[in-house]
Simulated assay, not measured.
Amino acid sequence: MFLDRFHTIQNGLIRISPAQASQFAREIAGDYNPIHNPDDRRFCVPGDLLFALVLGQYGLSQEMTFRFRNLLGGNVDLEFREEEDGTIRVFDTGGKLYLEVSRGGEHTSDVTVIENFSRCYVAASGKNFPHTFKPLLERKGVMFNPDRPMVIYESMSLSLERVDIPSPSLDMHNADMEVAGKRGNALLEYRVTSGGQPVGFVAKKIVVSGLREYDPEVMDQVVAQFNRLKEGS
């Protein structure tokens, strides 16, 4: 499976090293957020990797909601637990909760369907910056701290007309953000299509911390640095 390189399993527990998490962020998601760099003191595992691991282990359901409860550091032993009501929770061995997933409707364990959906979702997610966030921040007149950008998942939900989607694609439908002081709550909405036909939607809630007044020159420098990192990968 395409996720094998990005985690290890020992004694039934899943562990993600900083190097594996960073490789996933850059190679699969095209995500160069500094908090996914192995040597960053604020390092955390991409939420997209946890999303993909859940789908890889439990399959794709017609209705799913992912709620991210805590940031996950590197080399943490994780237990993926399925409750009697179908809820999936991801804990560490100390009982700390990182992810909670509710689901319903039709279900598929088809490996090809799951990989294709995971890849298309993660690729679309990786385009959040600068493609989506730069114009959104500019429109709102705010930006994150360029030295300490904190842009993290709060939740993600998906709703599909069916789960047998051979070649899914995610296209941005709408992006908006509510600003409250130094905090922004962004909502990104995507349409899911297959063969040019609509088959569902995805909505992501993202928290942006440390907001300040938008500075076009500084933002251009941030984008230029992002592009240099991407070209050098």
Rank of each mutant, 00 (worst) to 15 (best):
M156Y: 00
V142Y: 11
S157C: 07
N145S: 15
Y121S: 06
V45K: 05
N116G: 07
E100T: 14
F6D: 04
E161T: 11
V122G: 03
Q20W: 01
V142S: 06
V76Q: 10
P146H: 02
T93V: 14
P135K: 06
Y32F: 15
V142K: 13
S155C: 05
E106D: 13
L137S: 06
F201V: 11
G86R: 01
G126L: 00
R15S: 14
I152R: 00
R148N: 15
G74C: 10
L78H: 09
E84T: 15
Y121K: 14
F144C: 09
H36D: 02
E115W: 07
P168Y: 00
T112Y: 05
S233A: 14
I9A: 09
L211S: 08
E84H: 13
D48S: 04
F80G: 03
G195Q: 08
D39P: 15
G126P: 01
D48H: 04
L158Y: 00
P146W: 01
Q23W: 02
G86L: 06
F129V: 05
S167H: 12
E161Q: 09
R212A: 08
L99S: 10
D92H: 05
Q20P: 09
Y214S: 02
S17Q: 05
G181K: 12
T112M: 02
F133L: 15
F66G: 02
V208P: 10
I14P: 02
V202P: 07
S209T: 09
H173K: 15
L97F: 04
V45F: 01
E82P: 06
D39Q: 12
F51P: 14
R69C: 12
A186P: 08
I28G: 01
E213P: 14
I152H: 00
K182P: 11
A21M: 04
L71N: 11
G30Y: 00
N116L: 07
R139K: 14
S194G: 10
F2C: 04
A25I: 01
G73I: 06
I165N: 00
S167F: 07
F91I: 13
I28M: 05
Y32M: 03
A21T: 01
F68S: 03
G94I: 11
C120A: 15
V142H: 00
P135H: 01
G74I: 09
D110N: 14
S209H: 12
H107M: 03
E217Q: 15
E189D: 13
V218Y: 02
F201S: 15
L55G: 10
R148Q: 10
V90S: 12
V113D: 06
K230F: 00
D39K: 14
R228N: 11
R69N: 07
V218P: 10
